[in-house]
């Protein structure tokens, strides 16, 4: 599947990730700090993924100390 990452924006190809939780674990990304979007819609942790999918992994952590 095509995976779009942010900050900085980049793309990678992955195969075999069966769910959102599986995808995040493979990339060693925190579930609490990311959302996964497919076709403009959020996909929950146990949401099934296919190798034909295109997904965005969006980080949600932001902010300075002020």
């Amino acid at each position: 599947m095509k995976v779009v990452l942010r900050n900085p924006r980049r793309e990678l190809e992955l195969s075999g990730a069966k769910s959102v939780n599986d995808l995040l674990a493979r990339l060693e990304l925190s579930r609490e700090a990311h959302l996964v979007i497919r076709n403009g819609t959020l996909v929950p942790g146990d949401g099934r993924l296919a190798d034909t999918d295109e997904v965005e992994i969006r980080p949600v952590i932001s902010g300075g100390a002020a």
């Binding site: 609490e32 700090a33 959302l35 403009g40 959020l42 969006r58 949600v60 932001s62």
Partner: peptide, 11 residues
Amino acid sequence: TEREMAAWCIV
């Protein structure tokens, strides 16, 4: 949480 706020914006 931040995750909930990001989800709010997307939804």
